[in-house]
Every structure is written in structure tokens, then in C-alpha cells.
Amino acid sequence: MGKPMTEQTQTPETQSSPSTDVGKSDIIRVEGMHKWYGDFHVLKDLNLTVRHGERIVICGPSGSGKSTFIRCINRLEEHQQGKIIVDDVELTDDVRQIDSVRREVGMVFQHFNLFPHLTVLENCCLSPIWVRKTPRKEAEATAMEYLERVKIPDQANKFPGQLSGGQQQRVAIARALCMKPKIMLFDEPTSALDPEMIKEVLDVMIELAGSGMTMLCVTHEMGFAKTVADRVIFMDGGEIVEEAPPHDFFTNPQEPRTQKFLKQILQH
């Protein structure tokens, strides 16, 4: 990063104006990023800028590298070339920088990944207590607040195994929010759920989007993309093929690959 950073004010709700004021309110910048698994080139020259409060939906066929991409943003996967800068911190080999990025980035997984040996409340408090060093009482109060927000405060003392899939995923969202992250990553949060539970999770995500959280979602829920996203990114073969506001993306896709994909998922 050669650019000098000036003191910035936090502007949670940036209007989606064309990205002229680069650097001012960017929270994620990915520049020329490549990743290989052995000899397999999974991600090819990705460039992306995300502003504070922006909501981005990433879609694409399976194996297109979309999950790998967002997992690079909190360093669950390592990239080999290019830059990823999250909240002014570049992800390098420095463990302190990785730690500080992970503190600011919450993640929700496809298979929830709740800790089965801890209660819902303990799941939520774990990281605030051990990473943020918050006093237990305070952490529990915050956790209850977020559990309230995802509408399951009454399940706080149950174990994850006693909840339905939709409830588990909402706990997972609350758990991520308890760290008060600046960015939330969603890795196909609804694809492991039964159809009747998808809505309760999407409702929570929509509510969250309304509060001004910066969100990156890998999802196949096109309805969610239409109502919530500021931008839709289409990936295929490890590349970003198309990037457009949802209205343009769904009504007027430019690239043939995008057109083909949309045709496949929208027809029945």
C-alpha cells in the first residue's frame, strides 16, 4: 500500500454513487488476486472494491471459486499473489494482521459450524470473552441482545443439536455479530436448509442489511439478491465475469456466460 491513509470518519451508509472517491470509504480492496491449489488455478486475477455498508451478492455455478474467494477475505484460504486489504489491514503472513482482520470480519458457514459441546449462549460469548477479553456478564448481555435480534432468545441455554437447521443458522449469525464485526461474510448460508427454513434465515439477513452492515453473500437466492444487493457479482471458472447492480444484472446481462447461467437457474 503506497497510498497514505488519512483519518477517516466512519460513514456506515454510503450512497451507491459511482465509485469515484476510491480510498475514502473502501473497506475491502482486492487487487490482482490469484490462488492455486497445487497446479490448479482456482482464482484468476480478481479485483474488487467494497465500500462501507455495501451489500454484495456473489453467484455462479458450483466450482466457480466463489466460496474460495470469500474464504480468502478472512484468510481461511491463503492467496498466493495480489493484495487483499480489509479495513486498511493487508492480509500477509503476519499473524497479528490475520488476527485483527478476523476480529473485524464475521463469517456464516453453509453448515453452520456451531460448537456442539457449548450452549447457544456459550457459542455466542466464546469469542468476545477469549479474543476481545470482554467481561463475561457484558458478553452475555450482548449475546442476548443479538439472540433477540435473530428472534431466538428463548433457546439460549439449549445445545445446538436440539435446534432446527434454521434456528442453528440464526444462532450462527448471532455468534458472528457478537464480535461486533464491520463486515459479514455469508458462505451459502441457506443451501443446507430445508425449504421451509430458508425464509427465517433470509429475513434475519435482510434485517441485517437494513441496519447498514457491510455484507458479502455467496448465495443462490436470487430473490434476496434482487431485494437487498447493491451489486451482484457473477463468477465462473475462477474469474469475475460480470459485475452489475441487481436490476441490470437480472434484466440485461452483458456476458453470454451470465445469460446462460441465469437461464439455467430461472427456468424450471
Partner: peptide, 11 residues
């Protein structure tokens, strides 16, 4: 997933 979720929480 358990390892990943723990890492993602910054542990």
C-alpha cells in the same frame, strides 16, 4: 468446519 469456525472467530 469446527476448525474453520474457530479460526473465523479469531481464536
Amino acid at each position: 468446519g469446527q476448525y474453520e469456525a474457530a479460526s473465523a472467530l479469531g481464536l
